[in-house]
C-alpha cells in the first residue's frame, strides 16, 4: 500500500511539473522559430556580439523600439526569431520572441544611439558610432547600376553617415561604390538604394562564441 501511495505521489508531482510547463510550451507553439535567418536582419547597434548572450540578456521590454526616432527597430512579435542558425549555441527550446531586430531594407538605423542608452540590461551597451558593429555592407556588382554601366547613382555613398572610410567610389567620377573597413552596417545605404532588387545588403556580424 505504501508503495502505491508513493507511486501516486510521484505521478502527481510529474503531472504538476508537466502542467506547469504547458504555458511555456503554448508560447513556443504560437511562435515557432524560423528555419534560417532572413537576409538583412540585424541586431540594434551596440548589441552584444554573441547572439546567444544577446538573447539571454534581452528581457523583451521594447524600450529600444520605443525611443527609436526612425522607428526602425522591430520585434520578433509573431515568430520565435531566427533560432535555426548556429544550432549548437542555443539551448533547448530557445526562443527569441520579443527580441529586437532591424530590417534596413524597410527602415534603417540612423546611429543616434538612443537605444543603447535606454537599454536597462547589457544587451545593448553605449558604443561609439565608429565602433558599432551591426554588420558590413555587401554590393552585388552584377546588379548595381553603375557597376553594370546602367547610369550614375551614388545614393549609398551620399547617404552614408560614416564617410569615405565606410563606402566610397571606385575611381573619381566613376560612380561605382566600394565598401571600406569603416562600415558599421547601419543599413542606410540599403534603405536608400533605388534598385528594386537591392543589390546592396548588410551581412550581419553575429558570432556564436564569446570571443570578438
Amino acid at each position: 500500500m505504501r508503495r502505491r501511495s508513493l507511486l501516486r505521489r510521484i505521478a502527481g508531482v510529474t503531472a504538476l511539473l508537466i502542467g506547469s510547463t504547458l504555458p511555456y510550451g503554448f508560447i513556443s507553439l504560437l511562435a515557432p522559430n524560423q528555419a534560417w535567418p532572413r537576409r538583412n536582419h540585424l541586431r540594434p547597434p551596440g548589441a552584444l556580439p554573441n547572439d546567444d548572450a544577446f538573447v539571454s540578456a534581452c528581457i523583451g521590454c521594447g524600450l529600444c523600439g520605443e525611443v527609436c526616432p526612425p522607428r526602425c527597430i522591430k520585434f520578433h512579435s509573431r515568430d520565435g526569431g531566427e533560432g535555426g542558425e548556429g544550432g549548437e549555441g542555443g539551448g533547448m527550446g530557445r526562443t527569441e520572441i520579443n527580441t529586437p531586430y532591424i530590417d534596413p531594407s524597410v527602415r534603417a538605423c540612423s546611429l543616434c544611439g538612443k537605444c543603447m542608452e535606454v537599454c536597462p540590461t547589457a544587451a545593448l551597451s553605449p558604443t561609439l558610432r565608429k565602433k558599432v558593429a551591426m554588420g558590413i555592407a555587401q554590393i552585388d556588382r552584377t546588379a548595381c547600376y553603375p557597376w553594370v554601366d546602367r547610369g550614375v547613382c551614388g545614393a549609398c555613398v551620399t547617404i552614408c553617415p560614416l564617410g569615405a572610410d565606410a563606402i566610397s567610389f571606385d575611381f573619381a567620377n566613376i560612380y561605382r561604390p566600394v565598401v571600406g573597413k569603416g562600415c558599421v552596417g547601419c543599413g542606410l545605404c540599403v534603405e536608400i538604394c533605388p534598385h528594386p532588387s537591392k543589390p546592396i545588403w548588410i551581412l550581419p556580424i553575429l558570432t556564436q562564441t564569446d570571443e570578438a
Partner: peptide, 29 residues
C-alpha cells in the same frame, strides 16, 4: 534555453509590449 521564458507568459509584460506593438509596430503579436 538561455532565453527569458518567464517574460513570454507574464501578463503585465505581455500587455505592456503588445499595446506598443499594436500602436507603433502595426499590430498585435
Amino acid at each position: 534555453s538561455g532565453s527569458i521564458m518567464v517574460a513570454a507568459i507574464y501578463p503585465p509584460a505581455i500587455i505592456g509590449r503588445e499595446l506598443y506593438y499594436a500602436i507603433a509596430q502595426g499590430g498585435f503579436g
